[in-house]
Design a protein around this nucleic acid. Structure first.
Ligand code: ZN
Ligand code: ZN
Ligand code: ZN
Ligand code: ZN
Lengths: 153, 153
DNA sequence: CCTTGACCATGTAGTGGCTACAAGGTTTTT
DNA sequence: AAAAACCTTGTAGCCACTACATGGTCAAGG
């Protein structure tokens, strides 16, 4: 299997595959005589695992840890449990703030009816007013640059 | 107002303020005799606006455009409308995939009961199986490195 | 045989939105 | 006078890629 074939089989861009190899996530495969990477089934499975974890939005460091645990089957799985729980909590937190955010944006959207100048635009007015006001997502209660609110994207 | 005071007033880290200045988001203020930046009310309002938009998870490029529109009050506000709508659609898309993701993780969490080796861990088994299987978030229907699924974080 | 095009290799630099230094100058507090 | 808390600039790092630039390799078609 060349890198392009592996990429097609796993829906992972070859450049990304090389990147994974560079950072030590995917073991370097043997090379053919011409220098091309030659992958086997083990690589395919490992990469599919990585991609699946990424689709679950896990950071690569977490994936790395899971892969390590897979390679050491006699280790205690407590870490797996903790990792998943932490990650789930993280996702749920972001879900919360994304929901609040969507509500705010929906409100905002209703403010602009038809055509007019930006000076009269309800959306802009609302944004400016909210930025000044107290009852705003980004001002009440949250620490400076609070991750829960700011570090969404 | 020095940069630290502005930072406190808006809950934005001074380093971030300098960064905004560097990329042209916040106009460079006048300097005192000693070289310190001296901010006024206009800067405070502008930065509060930026922070509020960031709390709404808007990319800085969008914030830039909104600021430009604020500076040109006679422009048509259609752009504002479109920008908000696009952004809302984006947020809703991510909300969807985050929800699917949380469900997956919740399922996963239920797989690990008590202590055992990683070789026996239901979570790991599930992950490996899912990565191979067809009915998985990251394999069905989505393009290679599909943004809707992958580019969540 | 030669060209075209698709693939592969390496290395470097850029993305977004910060964040963290390092190395120095200034001001305020003790 | 010394220590701390501020300010300045510049550079490098974070994450997970992504996009080149430059060149080597290989199969098909003319
Ligand atoms: Zn999958
Ligand atoms: Zn409007
Ligand atoms: Zn706000
Ligand atoms: Zn387990």
């Amino acid at each position: 299997m060349r890198i392009g074939e592996l990429g097609q089989a796993t829906c992972v861009d070859p450049e990304t595959i090389r990147y994974y190899e560079r950072i030590g996530l995917l073991p370097a495969p043997v090379r053919r005589a011409n220098g091309y990477r030659a992958y086997g089934l083990a690589h395919l499975e490992r990469l599919a695992f990585i991609r699946h974890c990424r689709a679950l939005d896990m950071p690569l460091a977490d994936v790395q840890r899971l892969l390590h645990l897979l390679d050491h089957p006699l280790d205690d799985c407590l870490d797996v449990d903790r990792l998943i729980n932490t990650h789930l909590a993280h996702v749920q937190g972001r879900l919360q703030s994304l929901q609040a955010l969507a509500r705010q944006l929906e409100q905002l959207r209703g403010r602009c009816h038809g055509r007019h100048t930006t000076a009269e635009c309800g959306i802009l007015h609302e944004l400016v007013a909210a930025a000044q006001g107290e009852g705003c997502v980004c001002h009440d209660g949250s620490a400076p640059n609070s991750p829960e609110v700011i570090e969404i994207s």
